[in-house]
């Protein structure tokens, strides 16, 4: 049982500002059903003063996610966008008294939704989903967390250990394979090192057929199959045509509702990162 403060319990049981503002001036979304928590924040903004006159939320998630979302709407009402943008996840957590360490990512979600909502207002009000930049270097593939997000969380909250980073950003919380990378990021932040130069990779198109098969098979074996095996599934390489790698999912993965996601999030990501950025993966049924 989590040790929630009375304020968290109160905002969970009787959340304030539930719902959606009609014709909102800004709509920010973060998270998804897959991630296990999601927040949709709508704000009404006075054009002249840029003051937030109203804010409402909808949240899918645990008690601390609901409480964090609700108290965030309370905190930003009456503030200008500039003032509201200064709110950090630590502010949200301290407004609630505190949050269990493992639940700090709920407050980060609030901060990210707010960032997206402000961006949405600036972009004319069309809803914006908070996401990592296309160019961002994704460290945690399970929860799609970038190095930038991790560095930000480390600096803002003075995080020292990999567990800290997981509690605040979710990074490393699923398969755990990125934990060594997170440790390196922590070391880097505290030692102010410059990032090491990327090792050069041969573009996939320039590899020989045998080279392609070997490289792809090696990555599947080392990074992909162990993960799928845990869920009772596996993957086999069927063919390689140009830059397109064709694979078949096996066992429990076959026909699984999230097989499309498995291909994109797991197989393609691994091959892009470990072999070459220009690889496309296709599923053969």
């Amino acid at each position: 049982m989590w040790d929630y403060t009375d304020k968290v319990k109160e905002y969970f049981k009787n959340p304030k500002n539930v719902g959606e503002i009609e014709n909102a001036d800004g709509t920010g979304q973060v998270g998804s059903l897959v991630c296990g928590d999601a927040l949709r924040l709508t704000i009404k903004v006075d054009r002249k003063t840029e003051k937030i006159s109203d804010a409402k939320f909808q949240t899918f998630g645990c008690a601390s996610a609901i409480a964090s979302s609700s108290i965030l709407t309370e905190m930003i009402k009456g503030k200008t966008l500039a003032e509201a943008s200064k709110i950090t996840n630590a502010d949200i957590a301290s407004e609630l008294g505190s949050l269990p360490e493992e639940k700090m990512h709920c407050s980060v979600m609030g901060m990210e939704a707010l960032e997206a909502a402000v961006k949405s207002y600036r972009a004319g009000g069309k809803p914006i989903v908070f996401e990592e930049d296309e160019s961002a270097k994704i460290v945690c593939k399970c929860f799609n967390v970038s190095e930038e997000t991790i560095v930000k969380a480390i600096r803002a909250n003075n995080l020292k250990t990999v567990d800290d980073v997981t509690h605040f950003t979710k990074a490393g919380g699923a398969c755990g394979r990125c934990k060594p990378d997170i440790q390196k990021i922590i070391d880097k932040v505290y030692s102010c090192e410059t990032p090491a130069a990327q090792t050069g990779k041969i573009p996939f198109g320039q590899m020989t057929v045998v080279g392609k098969i070997k490289a792809v098979e090696a990555v599947l074996e080392e990074y992909v199959r162990p993960k799928l095996n845990m869920d009772g599934g596996s993957v086999e390489l069927v063919d390689i045509e140009g830059g397109t790698v064709k694979v078949r999912l096996l066992g429990a993965c076959r026909g699984c509702a999230s097989s499309g996601g498995t291909i994109k999030m797991l197989v393609e990501r691994a091959l892009k990162e470990k072999v070459s950025n220009d690889i496309k993966v296709e599923q053969v049924i």
Binding site: G36, D37, G61, C62, E102, G173, A174
Partner: peptide
């Protein structure tokens, strides 16, 4: 079997 109840971040295996 939700993720949030266990302290892990993934739902029940």
């Amino acid at each position: 079997g939700s993720a949030c109840t266990s302290g892990s971040l993934e739902p029940s295996h």
